[in-house]
Design a binder for these strands. Structure first.
Lengths: 228, 228
DNA sequence: CGATGGTATGACAGAATTGTGACAGTAGCA
DNA sequence: TGCTACTGTCACAATTCTGTCATACCATCG
């Protein structure tokens, strides 16, 4: 899973340092030098994480962070703020504006990478765009479409993610809490029984195609998507 | 399975609330009221998770966290920090000192338990997930499935655990009380005869594949799973 | 051969787990 | 702003699982 990290930083030297460390860790760094450049990149492809400098030419990093939080598409992208000062007020402002974490320059690359990993680990896994085929179903994340033996099936966002997870992890039993972690994200706090309800809704949607038995209950353990 | 959670909290009311919720979730709460008490418990038996209050009499929670991280034995025990303040700076400090997660009072028990589960799950991925093969049977804990010469066998939770134990401990006789300890857990109180009933149910499930003779009765001693 | 102690089996009620329909709050959208 | 669709939760129904008996069965031994 190579995550794309958008680095918004106007100083080339630091930009380069960050890019080097990020690449070292197996992630891909995308460079932006101001808020406008950042938006361009974001509109082109949503990054998995944004490393955002507090001081930017034009509009500040905090402002960009606010804009990111206001937009539905970018709302859930984690942000780590970078600042040159140790000014405490900056920390408060940065975190209030929606940043997930915060680090001051000069920082040790090791600490930064540790935080990046922590933030990435915490976020809900991203769904790839590849079409998945399993058990007579064809699911295309890009088009948000499901083809069941020629019939189209419409699902809500949650059921869609749930089915996508099952289709990419077939034949294996997942407990309710594992499903919550994988499909809802491990920072969400909902009742475990909520999973049951969504399983039911998913089965209900698959029923017209007689594919509802693909999702099996394993009493005492959880649920399983089985192609047999 | 039942994880021990050390709760380091000086306020009895909160201690009790935490203990109640932890017990509710099936974990065991161990109580400590200060850093020294915590060390005593830790030296006695390593907990699976530590719930640590930020404000403690004597040395602070952060200090205890640092000490835990410095010690080889306790380095890998996950820590969740509790704090009364909503000051984001504490969050930074807490995470820097080695905590795995962080929660502010007042917290919802549900959120706290969700985090506990998440942390425990991250740290301890399923242990014996490996497929076991013995006596013409193939048992996969991950899929919660049993393959008997191509035929799928469905078992209830108890029979599944029983068969899993037998397959991982073949050719040896176990008494009823040993089986109760190993399969049911050594804290439950059930009649020894109950084992007979579950043995029968297991044999019944294996019968269609003519594999019921794998489980042999040793009169006066117990039962044995034999591959011959 | 019958007595004896241990084991197998079928039935059953209570416990535990899961399925289901309803509902209110919320978020997205026009 | 109002409308629509989606979510999470609950209460209750339906199902399955468990532990315990009572009884039938069997090996062993006097």
């Amino acid at each position: 899973m190579t995550a794309n990290i958008l680095v918004v930083e106007d100083e080339p030297a630091i930009q380069e340092l960050l890019a080097f460390n990020i690449a070292q860790c197996g992630y891909r760094a995308i460079e932006a030098y101001d808020a406008d450049g950042a938006w361009t990149h974001i509109n082109h492809a949503l990054p998995d994480l944004i490393l955002l400098d507090w001081m930017l030419p034009g509009s500040s990093g905090v402002e960009l962070a606010r804009r990111l939080r206001a937009d539905q598409r970018t709302r859930n992208i984690p942000i780590i703020m970078l600042t040159a000062r140790t000014d405490e007020r900056d920390k408060i402002l940065g975190l209030e504006s929606g940043a997930d974490d915060y680090i001051t320059k000069p920082f040790s690359p090791r600490e930064l990478m540790a935080r990046i990993r922590a933030v990435l680990r915490r976020r809900a896994p991203q769904m790839s765009d590849e079409t998945v085929v399993a058990g007579g179903l064809e699911l295309s994340p890009a088009m948000h479409r499901i083809n069941a033996n020629g019939a189209m099936i419409d699902l809500g966002p949650t059921e869609f993610r749930l089915l996508h997870f099952f289709m990419t992890h077939p034949e294996r039993v997942y407990s309710r809490s594992q499903l919550l972690d994988q499909v809802w994200g491990d920072h969400v706090f909902v009742e475990e029984r909520t999973v049951d309800v969504h399983i039911r809704r998913l089965r209900q949607a698959l029923e017209p195609s007689s594919l509802d038995r693909l999702i099996q209950t394993v009493r005492g353990s959880g649920y399983r998507f089985s192609c047999n």
